[in-house]
Write a protein that binds this DNA or RNA. Structure first.
Lengths: 232, 232
DNA sequence: CGGACAGTTCGGCGCATGCCGAACTCTGGC
DNA sequence: GCCAGAGTTCGGCATGCGCCGAACTGTCCG
């Protein structure tokens, strides 16, 4: 019992540092970053970043892939992403943006962003609502895909999107921390996000988790879901 | 974005200390402890405990009630308990019990314990399974109470147990970290646990989250659920 | 009123750890 | 082969913070 306290403390300590937390939160975009990028993002030197990243990888929070002279880092899995989101939510938002640029940036984030591997923000919530009211998903005590939904997702993303993903839950609703309402997560949420990116319906904003809905994206959601949104 | 890192780090830092973690984990039993009890449990002096508890209360992790010269502490809410459970699970179990007594204690915990405010361990999982196979709960894409279940719970715990609890989810399944299978959580899980304690079907083991199934408890679960368990 | 006890405040000690600069290693490209 | 750039190792500095003992406040009880 007292040993558990020790290991919980050690584990929490991994995220109890401003630099390590900044790096982990950056990785919530679901992509792999190089060590140098993470160092710059956290505002620290490369040596220090190396130390931090070694810790995080050893603890199983981060996974690494070495390619040539670059070391790519990503979150070790969805549970880690989930934990980070919860932590970020409970940590509250005492963040009162102090520059116009920061306001602009956080407005972009609130409009549309990726949340690890799926879409979030106002866009994510709007999509979720549209999927529900179009009868493609139901929420009768737990999320489920309807028959119409199966057809819809198969046409969009191929039959694999609905295949029993390797141990991962197909549908999950994730509480959006800007909208305070749920959006679609889980394997299907990830597949949806992937298609939106691949088809150019949304594009990533440089160096941020924010994404922009393109003209073709707006047209697509109108056509497929009857959802009228403005491109940005 | 960088501000969020700061607050996440600060928040995680609250649990990144062995003593604070020990106190929080102790409070996972769902009961209120006095400051001195927590200090003793964490193996630190009262002055140090006061500092830690002030931090945890200020951060909203713990709630306090002052009565006379005693200061009672409890977890601030179910989300906190959930976060702690997740953290404890991810922190893994590098705990290789080193004394016979520790083995015995962890065996007790695995058999039956409280998980914040509901029953867990082998007992919790067995009850959950029995509720399902008796047709009182269903899990067709999300937990739900059947009509038979409504009658059963009303008889056991009164109609309030099924009332729309103040904002809290009625049913939740919580992954048991010893059994690796789900047990009943949420408001109904809490009500069930409360009845078991009130009726003397289980009793708390001193200074631990473990509980013991009594003889009358074993008889009751057999009568009500057809579940044959040995008292311990 | 006085003793017992829970909790708090204060000052100071000592360790843990986050940080950097400088030097080193490895890979890829010309 | 040599240079550029990514990453690592090392030594040392500075700060933060967890801890305690001693003294103080407040409550309950006889």
């Amino acid at each position: 019992m007292i040993l558990a306290a020790e290991s919980v403390a050690t584990f929490a300590g991994l995220l109890a540092d401003r630099s390590r937390a900044a790096m982990c939160l950056a990785l919530l975009d679901g992509q792999a970053w190089t060590a140098s990028e993470l160092a710059r993002h956290a505002g620290i030197g490369r040596p220090t970043a190396t130390e931090h990243l070694n810790l995080l990888v050893a603890a199983g929070l981060l996974a690494e892939v070495r390619q040539g002279r670059c070391r790519y880092l990503r979150l070790a899995g969805p549970q880690v992403a989930r934990l980070l989101e919860e932590l970020a939510e409970m940590a509250g938002q005492p963040e009162r943006p102090r520059s116009l640029r920061a306001v602009r940036a956080s407005a972009d984030l609130a409009a549309a962003r990726t949340c690890y591997d799926h879409l979030a923000g106002a866009l994510g919530v709007a999509l979720f609502d549209a999927l529900m009211s179009a009868g493609l998903l139901t929420n009768g005590d737990g999320l489920a895909v309807t028959d119409a939904g199966r057809a819809w997702f198969t046409e969009l993303a191929g039959p694999d999107a609905l295949a029993p993903a390797s141990g991962r839950q197909l549908l999950r609703s994730c509480l959006d921390w800007t909208e305070r309402r749920p959006h679609l997560s889980g394997a299907l949420g990830a597949a949806l996000c992937q298609q939106f990116l691949r088809r150019g319906w949304v594009i990533r904003c440089q160096g941020s988790r924010a994404v922009r809905l393109t003209g073709s994206g707006a047209a697509a959601v109108d056509r497929l879901l009857g959802l009228e949104l403005a491109a940005s």
